[in-house]
Design a protein around this nucleic acid. Structure first.
Lengths: 175, 175
DNA sequence: GGCATGAGTTCAATGACCGAACCGACGACG
DNA sequence: CGTCGTCGGTTCGGTCATTGAACTCATGCC
Protein backbone atom coordinates (compact mmCIF):
# COMPACT_ATOMS: atom_id res chain seq x y z
CA UNK A 1 0.00 0.00 0.00
CA UNK A 2 1.21 3.45 -0.79
CA UNK A 3 1.65 5.26 2.49
CA UNK A 4 0.94 8.36 0.53
CA UNK A 5 1.62 11.89 1.53
CA UNK A 6 -1.40 11.74 3.82
CA UNK A 7 -0.79 8.30 5.34
CA UNK A 8 -4.09 6.98 4.06
CA UNK A 9 -5.22 3.83 5.73
CA UNK A 10 -3.29 4.42 8.94
CA UNK A 11 -5.79 4.97 11.65
CA UNK A 12 -3.70 6.52 14.37
CA UNK A 13 -2.48 9.80 15.74
CA UNK A 14 1.14 8.93 15.11
CA UNK A 15 0.44 8.61 11.41
CA UNK A 16 -1.32 11.97 11.44
CA UNK A 17 1.76 13.50 13.01
CA UNK A 18 4.10 11.80 10.55
CA UNK A 19 1.97 13.11 7.73
CA UNK A 20 3.07 16.59 8.70
CA UNK A 21 6.57 16.10 10.10
CA UNK A 22 7.65 12.78 8.64
CA UNK A 23 9.30 13.89 5.40
CA UNK A 24 13.06 14.09 5.10
CA UNK A 25 14.45 17.34 6.49
CA UNK A 26 11.19 18.52 8.08
CA UNK A 27 12.00 17.81 11.70
CA UNK A 28 15.40 19.45 11.28
CA UNK A 29 13.70 22.55 9.88
CA UNK A 30 11.35 22.60 12.88
CA UNK A 31 14.31 22.11 15.22
CA UNK A 32 16.08 25.07 13.65
CA UNK A 33 12.94 27.17 13.97
CA UNK A 34 12.98 26.29 17.67
CA UNK A 35 16.53 27.64 17.91
CA UNK A 36 15.23 30.88 16.44
CA UNK A 37 16.19 30.54 12.80
CA UNK A 38 13.72 32.51 10.68
CA UNK A 39 15.24 33.43 7.34
CA UNK A 40 15.27 31.25 4.24
CA UNK A 41 18.99 31.75 3.73
CA UNK A 42 19.75 30.86 7.35
CA UNK A 43 17.80 27.61 7.30
CA UNK A 44 19.49 26.83 4.03
CA UNK A 45 23.01 27.59 5.17
CA UNK A 46 22.74 25.93 8.55
CA UNK A 47 21.11 22.76 7.26
CA UNK A 48 22.83 22.78 3.86
CA UNK A 49 19.52 21.67 2.41
CA UNK A 50 18.59 21.93 -1.27
CA UNK A 51 16.67 25.15 -1.79
CA UNK A 52 13.80 23.48 -3.60
CA UNK A 53 13.29 21.08 -0.71
CA UNK A 54 13.48 23.87 1.86
CA UNK A 55 10.99 25.98 -0.06
CA UNK A 56 8.54 23.11 -0.26
CA UNK A 57 8.99 22.17 3.41
CA UNK A 58 8.49 25.71 4.64
CA UNK A 59 5.32 26.09 2.55
CA UNK A 60 3.99 22.77 3.79
CA UNK A 61 4.66 23.68 7.42
CA UNK A 62 2.90 27.01 6.90
CA UNK A 63 -0.06 25.24 5.31
CA UNK A 64 -0.18 22.76 8.20
CA UNK A 65 -0.17 25.58 10.73
CA UNK A 66 3.17 24.84 12.39
CA UNK A 67 4.95 27.89 10.96
CA UNK A 68 3.60 31.28 10.02
CA UNK A 69 5.03 33.42 7.29
CA UNK A 70 5.69 37.00 8.33
CA UNK A 71 6.65 39.96 6.13
CA UNK A 72 9.77 41.51 7.62
CA UNK A 73 10.51 43.86 4.75
CA UNK A 74 8.44 45.37 1.95
CA UNK A 75 11.00 46.44 -0.65
CA UNK A 76 11.96 43.98 -1.80
CA UNK A 77 9.27 41.79 -0.18
CA UNK A 78 10.91 39.52 2.38
CA UNK A 79 9.25 36.92 4.59
CA UNK A 80 10.48 35.06 7.60
CA UNK A 81 9.13 31.89 9.20
CA UNK A 82 8.10 31.70 12.84
CA UNK A 83 6.81 28.75 14.84
CA UNK A 84 3.13 28.89 15.78
CA UNK A 85 1.92 27.62 19.17
CA UNK A 86 1.05 24.33 17.45
CA UNK A 87 4.58 24.07 16.15
CA UNK A 88 6.00 24.96 19.53
CA UNK A 89 4.22 22.05 21.12
CA UNK A 90 6.53 19.75 19.21
CA UNK A 91 9.22 20.77 21.68
CA UNK A 92 8.86 17.67 23.84
CA UNK A 93 8.83 15.15 21.00
CA UNK A 94 11.81 16.88 19.39
CA UNK A 95 13.73 17.12 22.67
CA UNK A 96 13.06 13.55 23.74
CA UNK A 97 13.94 12.17 20.34
CA UNK A 98 17.17 14.15 20.28
CA UNK A 99 18.05 12.98 23.77
CA UNK A 100 17.42 9.39 22.71
CA UNK A 101 19.75 9.89 19.76
CA UNK A 102 22.37 11.43 21.98
CA UNK A 103 22.17 8.67 24.51
CA UNK A 104 22.30 5.75 22.14
CA UNK A 105 23.84 6.89 18.92
CA UNK A 106 25.77 10.08 18.96
CA UNK A 107 28.91 9.71 21.06
CA UNK A 108 31.35 12.47 22.06
CA UNK A 109 29.01 13.72 24.80
CA UNK A 110 26.10 16.11 24.45
CA UNK A 111 26.45 18.77 21.80
CA UNK A 112 23.61 20.87 23.17
CA UNK A 113 22.47 21.34 26.74
CA UNK A 114 19.00 22.62 27.57
CA UNK A 115 18.49 24.68 30.71
CA UNK A 116 15.56 26.28 32.44
CA UNK A 117 16.36 29.90 31.63
CA UNK A 118 14.98 31.34 34.85
CA UNK A 119 16.57 29.03 37.45
CA UNK A 120 19.48 27.69 35.37
CA UNK A 121 18.68 24.03 36.02
CA UNK A 122 19.54 21.60 33.31
CA UNK A 123 16.35 20.00 31.97
CA UNK A 124 15.75 16.30 31.61
CA UNK A 125 14.68 14.50 28.41
CA UNK A 126 11.06 15.62 28.80
CA UNK A 127 11.89 19.25 29.67
CA UNK A 128 11.27 18.69 33.38
CA UNK A 129 12.99 21.11 35.76
CA UNK A 130 13.99 19.27 38.93
CA UNK A 131 14.36 22.52 40.83
CA UNK A 132 10.96 24.01 40.02
CA UNK A 133 9.37 20.57 39.81
CA UNK A 134 7.49 21.26 36.65
CA UNK A 135 7.66 20.76 32.92
CA UNK A 136 9.24 23.77 31.23
CA UNK A 137 7.67 25.14 28.03
CA UNK A 138 9.98 25.98 25.17
CA UNK A 139 9.55 29.69 25.89
CA UNK A 140 11.57 29.28 29.07
CA UNK A 141 14.41 27.18 27.69
CA UNK A 142 17.97 28.21 26.99
CA UNK A 143 20.22 26.13 24.73
CA UNK A 144 23.92 26.03 25.45
CA UNK A 145 26.87 24.40 23.74
CA UNK A 146 27.76 21.09 25.30
CA UNK A 147 31.13 19.34 25.67
CA UNK A 148 30.52 17.31 22.52
CA UNK A 149 30.28 20.35 20.24
CA UNK A 150 33.33 20.51 18.01
CA UNK A 151 34.97 23.88 17.51
CA UNK A 152 36.11 23.09 13.99
CA UNK A 153 32.61 22.48 12.70
CA UNK A 154 30.05 24.63 10.96
CA UNK A 155 30.86 28.17 10.05
CA UNK A 156 27.43 29.39 9.05
CA UNK A 157 26.04 32.25 11.04
CA UNK A 158 23.55 30.12 12.92
CA UNK A 159 26.19 27.71 14.16
CA UNK A 160 28.32 30.65 15.26
CA UNK A 161 25.38 32.20 17.09
CA UNK A 162 24.69 28.94 18.92
CA UNK A 163 28.19 28.80 20.35
CA UNK A 164 26.88 31.03 23.10
CA UNK A 165 23.89 30.37 25.32
CA UNK A 166 20.77 31.27 23.40
CA UNK A 167 17.16 31.49 24.40
CA UNK A 168 15.01 29.14 22.33
CA UNK A 169 12.61 30.92 19.93
CA UNK A 170 14.58 34.15 20.20
CA UNK A 171 15.35 35.20 16.62
CA UNK A 172 18.82 34.49 15.42
CA UNK A 173 19.46 37.62 13.42
CA UNK A 174 22.36 37.05 11.12
CA UNK A 175 22.13 40.26 9.13
CA UNK B 1 23.57 18.66 0.07
CA UNK B 2 22.46 15.07 0.13
CA UNK B 3 21.13 14.35 3.59
CA UNK B 4 22.17 10.82 2.93
CA UNK B 5 21.13 7.76 4.78
CA UNK B 6 23.51 8.72 7.54
CA UNK B 7 22.66 12.43 7.73
CA UNK B 8 26.23 13.45 6.98
CA UNK B 9 26.98 17.01 7.78
CA UNK B 10 24.33 17.33 10.44
CA UNK B 11 26.07 17.74 13.73
CA UNK B 12 23.33 16.95 16.18
CA UNK B 13 21.70 14.17 18.12
CA UNK B 14 18.38 14.67 16.41
CA UNK B 15 19.96 13.90 13.06
CA UNK B 16 21.54 10.77 14.53
CA UNK B 17 18.12 9.67 15.68
CA UNK B 18 16.52 10.46 12.33
CA UNK B 19 19.22 8.44 10.65
CA UNK B 20 17.77 5.38 12.33
CA UNK B 21 14.07 6.15 12.59
CA UNK B 22 13.52 8.82 9.98
CA UNK B 23 12.64 6.75 6.94
CA UNK B 24 9.05 6.32 5.82
CA UNK B 25 7.25 3.56 7.73
CA UNK B 26 9.98 3.05 10.33
CA UNK B 27 8.34 4.76 13.26
CA UNK B 28 5.07 2.96 12.55
CA UNK B 29 6.95 -0.35 12.60
CA UNK B 30 8.49 0.59 15.95
CA UNK B 31 5.08 1.65 17.26
CA UNK B 32 3.63 -1.72 16.25
CA UNK B 33 6.52 -3.49 17.94
CA UNK B 34 5.61 -1.56 21.09
CA UNK B 35 2.07 -2.91 20.84
CA UNK B 36 3.57 -6.39 20.79
CA UNK B 37 3.51 -7.17 17.09
CA UNK B 38 6.36 -9.60 16.32
CA UNK B 39 5.68 -11.55 13.14
CA UNK B 40 6.47 -10.38 9.64
CA UNK B 41 2.97 -11.17 8.42
CA UNK B 42 1.37 -9.26 11.29
CA UNK B 43 3.40 -6.11 10.75
CA UNK B 44 2.61 -6.39 7.07
CA UNK B 45 -1.13 -6.93 7.50
CA UNK B 46 -1.62 -4.31 10.18
CA UNK B 47 0.39 -1.63 8.44
CA UNK B 48 -0.45 -2.73 4.90
CA UNK B 49 3.16 -1.98 4.03
CA UNK B 50 4.96 -3.29 0.94
CA UNK B 51 6.81 -6.47 1.91
CA UNK B 52 10.11 -5.34 0.44
CA UNK B 53 9.98 -2.14 2.46
CA UNK B 54 9.07 -4.01 5.64
CA UNK B 55 11.86 -6.51 5.13
CA UNK B 56 14.40 -3.73 4.69
CA UNK B 57 13.10 -1.75 7.65
CA UNK B 58 13.16 -4.73 9.99
CA UNK B 59 16.71 -5.59 8.94
CA UNK B 60 17.84 -1.99 9.41
CA UNK B 61 16.28 -1.81 12.87
CA UNK B 62 17.99 -5.07 13.82
CA UNK B 63 21.31 -3.74 12.53
CA UNK B 64 20.82 -0.52 14.50
CA UNK B 65 20.09 -2.44 17.68
CA UNK B 66 16.47 -1.39 18.17
CA UNK B 67 14.99 -4.78 17.33
CA UNK B 68 16.38 -8.24 17.80
CA UNK B 69 15.57 -11.16 15.58
CA UNK B 70 14.54 -14.30 17.45
CA UNK B 71 14.03 -17.82 16.06
CA UNK B 72 10.58 -18.96 17.14
CA UNK B 73 10.49 -22.12 15.00
CA UNK B 74 13.12 -24.29 13.40
CA UNK B 75 11.23 -26.19 10.70
CA UNK B 76 10.69 -24.25 8.66
CA UNK B 77 12.96 -21.56 10.14
CA UNK B 78 10.84 -18.66 11.41
CA UNK B 79 12.01 -15.47 13.10
CA UNK B 80 10.14 -12.84 15.00
CA UNK B 81 11.19 -9.29 15.87
CA UNK B 82 11.31 -7.99 19.44
CA UNK B 83 12.20 -4.52 20.72
CA UNK B 84 15.53 -4.22 22.51
CA UNK B 85 15.92 -1.96 25.56
CA UNK B 86 17.31 0.70 23.20
CA UNK B 87 14.21 0.44 21.06
CA UNK B 88 11.96 0.54 24.10
CA UNK B 89 13.44 3.85 25.13
CA UNK B 90 11.75 5.39 22.12
CA UNK B 91 8.49 5.03 24.05
CA UNK B 92 8.44 8.66 25.20
CA UNK B 93 9.26 10.21 21.81
CA UNK B 94 6.69 7.98 20.12
CA UNK B 95 4.03 8.66 22.76
CA UNK B 96 4.56 12.40 22.84
CA UNK B 97 4.57 12.67 19.07
CA UNK B 98 1.37 10.63 18.84
CA UNK B 99 -0.26 12.78 21.50
CA UNK B 100 0.74 15.91 19.58
CA UNK B 101 -0.81 14.45 16.45
CA UNK B 102 -3.97 13.55 18.32
CA UNK B 103 -4.29 16.94 19.88
CA UNK B 104 -3.71 19.01 16.77
CA UNK B 105 -4.46 16.90 13.76
CA UNK B 106 -6.49 13.81 14.29
CA UNK B 107 -10.03 14.68 15.32
CA UNK B 108 -12.72 12.24 16.49
CA UNK B 109 -11.19 11.96 19.96
CA UNK B 110 -8.38 9.69 21.06
CA UNK B 111 -8.15 6.32 19.37
CA UNK B 112 -5.82 4.85 21.94
CA UNK B 113 -5.60 5.51 25.66
CA UNK B 114 -2.50 4.68 27.66
CA UNK B 115 -2.85 3.67 31.29
CA UNK B 116 -0.47 2.77 34.10
CA UNK B 117 -1.18 -0.94 34.23
CA UNK B 118 -0.70 -1.28 37.98
CA UNK B 119 -2.78 1.64 39.31
CA UNK B 120 -5.04 2.17 36.27
CA UNK B 121 -4.29 5.89 35.95
CA UNK B 122 -4.38 7.36 32.51
CA UNK B 123 -0.89 8.59 31.57
CA UNK B 124 -0.07 12.04 30.26
CA UNK B 125 1.82 12.82 27.04
CA UNK B 126 5.19 12.01 28.62
CA UNK B 127 4.05 8.79 30.30
CA UNK B 128 3.76 10.44 33.72
CA UNK B 129 1.41 8.80 36.22
CA UNK B 130 -0.25 11.49 38.34
CA UNK B 131 -1.21 8.93 41.00
CA UNK B 132 2.22 7.39 41.52
CA UNK B 133 3.94 10.70 40.66
CA UNK B 134 6.50 9.13 38.41
CA UNK B 135 7.26 8.46 34.79
CA UNK B 136 6.04 5.03 33.76
CA UNK B 137 8.28 2.82 31.61
CA UNK B 138 6.71 1.10 28.65
CA UNK B 139 6.82 -2.20 30.52
CA UNK B 140 4.09 -0.93 32.85
CA UNK B 141 1.76 0.53 30.25
CA UNK B 142 -1.56 -0.78 29.03
CA UNK B 143 -3.10 0.43 25.80
CA UNK B 144 -6.87 0.61 25.53
CA UNK B 145 -9.24 1.54 22.73
CA UNK B 146 -10.37 5.14 22.97
CA UNK B 147 -13.66 6.77 21.95
CA UNK B 148 -12.24 7.79 18.56
CA UNK B 149 -11.57 4.23 17.47
CA UNK B 150 -13.95 3.30 14.69
CA UNK B 151 -15.59 -0.11 14.83
CA UNK B 152 -15.81 -0.47 11.08
CA UNK B 153 -12.08 -0.16 10.54
CA UNK B 154 -9.26 -2.62 10.21
CA UNK B 155 -9.94 -6.31 10.27
CA UNK B 156 -6.43 -7.63 10.55
CA UNK B 157 -5.66 -9.74 13.58
CA UNK B 158 -3.62 -7.03 15.28
CA UNK B 159 -6.40 -4.46 15.05
CA UNK B 160 -8.84 -7.00 16.43
CA UNK B 161 -6.49 -7.83 19.31
CA UNK B 162 -6.14 -4.15 20.18
CA UNK B 163 -9.88 -3.71 20.62
CA UNK B 164 -9.37 -4.98 24.15
CA UNK B 165 -6.98 -3.57 26.71
CA UNK B 166 -3.53 -4.90 25.97
CA UNK B 167 -0.29 -4.68 27.84
CA UNK B 168 2.41 -2.98 25.76
CA UNK B 169 5.24 -5.27 24.66
CA UNK B 170 3.14 -8.37 25.39
CA UNK B 171 3.23 -10.46 22.23
CA UNK B 172 0.17 -10.28 20.04
CA UNK B 173 -0.09 -13.89 18.99
CA UNK B 174 -2.32 -14.14 15.99
CA UNK B 175 -1.75 -17.76 15.11
C1' DG C 1 25.09 50.20 -15.48
C1' DG C 2 27.03 46.31 -13.12
C1' DC C 3 27.21 43.63 -9.20
C1' DA C 4 25.62 41.45 -4.96
C1' DT C 5 21.98 39.61 -2.29
C1' DG C 6 17.89 37.10 -1.00
C1' DA C 7 14.20 34.10 -2.06
C1' DG C 8 13.21 31.37 -4.52
C1' DT C 9 12.30 28.24 -9.45
C1' DT C 10 13.66 24.88 -12.94
C1' DC C 11 15.58 20.63 -14.60
C1' DA C 12 17.62 16.21 -15.34
C1' DA C 13 19.94 12.46 -12.87
C1' DT C 14 19.71 9.42 -9.04
C1' DG C 15 17.61 7.06 -5.22
C1' DA C 16 13.42 5.45 -2.56
C1' DC C 17 8.91 3.64 -2.63
C1' DC C 18 5.43 0.86 -4.56
C1' DG C 19 2.32 -2.93 -6.66
C1' DA C 20 2.50 -7.12 -8.51
C1' DA C 21 4.45 -11.25 -9.33
C1' DC C 22 7.32 -14.69 -7.99
C1' DC C 23 10.16 -18.06 -5.02
C1' DG C 24 11.52 -21.71 -1.64
C1' DA C 25 10.60 -24.42 2.31
C1' DC C 26 7.88 -26.36 4.74
C1' DG C 27 3.19 -28.77 6.80
C1' DA C 28 -1.51 -30.35 6.04
C1' DC C 29 -4.66 -32.88 3.49
C1' DG C 30 -6.86 -36.11 0.28
C1' DC D 1 2.56 -38.98 -3.47
C1' DG D 2 0.84 -34.68 -5.28
C1' DT D 3 -1.38 -30.47 -4.44
C1' DC D 4 -2.46 -26.60 -1.89
C1' DG D 5 -1.81 -23.15 1.66
C1' DT D 6 1.17 -20.46 4.57
C1' DC D 7 5.09 -17.85 5.80
C1' DG D 8 8.92 -14.96 4.97
C1' DG D 9 10.62 -13.17 2.06
C1' DT D 10 12.91 -11.56 -3.16
C1' DT D 11 12.62 -9.46 -7.74
C1' DC D 12 11.34 -6.03 -11.01
C1' DG D 13 9.84 -2.10 -13.49
C1' DG D 14 7.12 2.14 -12.97
C1' DT D 15 6.34 6.26 -10.20
C1' DC D 16 7.62 9.63 -6.97
C1' DA D 17 11.06 12.19 -3.94
C1' DT D 18 15.54 14.09 -3.46
C1' DT D 19 19.49 16.28 -5.21
C1' DG D 20 23.15 19.42 -7.44
C1' DA D 21 23.55 22.87 -10.45
C1' DA D 22 21.99 26.48 -12.94
C1' DC D 23 18.92 29.97 -13.46
C1' DT D 24 15.39 33.95 -12.45
C1' DC D 25 13.54 38.10 -10.52
C1' DA D 26 13.46 42.11 -7.74
C1' DT D 27 15.60 44.86 -5.36
C1' DG D 28 19.69 48.03 -3.22
C1' DC D 29 24.35 49.71 -3.51
C1' DC D 30 28.42 51.67 -5.66
Amino acid sequence: MALGKNYDGQDCSLASALEVIGERWTLLVIRDAMYGVRRFADFQAHLDIPKAVLSQRLSALVAAGLLERRRYQDAPPRDEYVLTPVGRELWIPVLSLGQWGERHLAGNGPRRLFHHATCDTRLDAVSFCATCRRSVPIEEVEVRPGPGLCDDMRRDQVSLALRKPHRLLAPILTR
